[in-house]
């Protein structure tokens, strides 16, 4: 299990990274922490002509909290975000979910944006970005745009990123005053990818549940609070709408049951935080 040959470009500034992506497009792969790209390279699931290292760009290394939320640069490692002093206050959902991302030994190098780029349907970070209404900041030689997470994750390990674009950061709205959130996950072992993961955000006016590991991408549902229907019925309809399939790890039926039960537990825990 060794990667096929590639050129390695250590970008010294953003323009160099953009130039490499413009020149090579889909034959280029960006490496940051490498915790998802390296297995793909070693198993030769990807065989890029060039690998572009963006970890030497100081501009991508920051976590900035401002009036419009928190900007997490593409070079920010998962462990750095977990150690960020503002995490529990501003991003309580990620504070709850990040310990479930891989292991301490992979969070030490893996980046937040790298997980978004990889877009594994079971991964915790894309799920949280969707639940929180985050936007993904993409840049290229031709300009810059921001894509809502709901439009960014388009399917199994596929995203709306064009082949000449670099994920430069994710922007996450800060915690809404008076909201509560919770995260739960079921997997065979801690550190495995989730069989089902749930993220809930509850306010006085809304109940939101996002589910990962079931469909080919994380899926979000906002439940109306006062439509007269019990939550269980709404969760059941959501569970069926996810179109769960059988695979090696669990049956579709089992996944639906997890969505019903764990979804309810997650919402109730978020309500308790909210209260």
């Amino acid at each position: 299990m060794k990667p096929a040959r590639f050129d390695y470009i250590r970008a010294a500034d953003l323009a160099e990274a953009h130039d490499a992506l413009a020149e090579y497009g889909n034959d280029a792969r960006v490496i940051a922490g490498g915790q998802t790209l390296m297995p793909m390279l070693s198993m030769r699931l990807v065989r890029p002509k060039v690998v572009v290292d963006i970890m030497h760009l100081p501009a991508l290394r920051g976590i900035e909290a401002g009036g419009n939320g928190i900007r997490i640069g593409a070079g920010v490692r998962q462990a750095e975000l977990l150690a960020w002093p503002g995490l529990a206050e501003h991003l309580p959902l990620l504070n709850a979910a990040l310990p479930w991302v891989g292991h301490a030994q992979t969070r030490s190098r893996g980046t937040v944006c790298g997980s978004a780029a990889h877009a594994d349907p079971s991964a915790e970070i894309p799920l949280c970005l969707l639940a929180l209404g985050a936007t993904i900041e993409l840049s290229s030689r031709r300009g810059r745009r921001r894509v809502p997470a709901a439009d960014f994750f388009t399917g199994m390990m596929t995203t709306a990123r064009a082949e000449n674009e670099l994920i430069e950061a994710v922007h996450i709205p800060g915690k809404q005053a008076g909201s509560g959130c919770a995260f739960k996950e079921f997997g065979r072992r801690h550190g495995d990818f989730a069989i089902v993961a749930c993220a809930a955000i509850v306010t006085a006016a809304s109940v939101r549940l996002a589910v990962g590991g079931v469909a080919d991408k994380p899926v979000l549902r906002d439940f109306a609070i006062d439509d007269g229907k019990p939550l269980d019925e709404a969760l059941d309809a959501f569970a069926w709408a996810l179109d769960a399939r059988d695979d090696l790890h669990a049956t579709g039926r089992y996944r639906r049951e997890l969505v019903r039960q764990m979804g309810r537990d997650t919402i109730e825990e978020a309500r308790r935080c909210h209260a």
Binding site: M1, Q35, M38, P39, S42, H103, A104, Q105, T106, R109
Partner: peptide, 22 residues
């Protein structure tokens, strides 16, 4: 491929998989 942990070393003060590092 980063699962077993046998190759863990310390890189710049933090434990990391050397098989997931070029």
């Amino acid at each position: 491929h980063g699962v077993c942990g046998a190759c863990t070393v310390e890189i710049d003060g933090v434990p990391a998989r050397s098989c997931l590092t070029l």
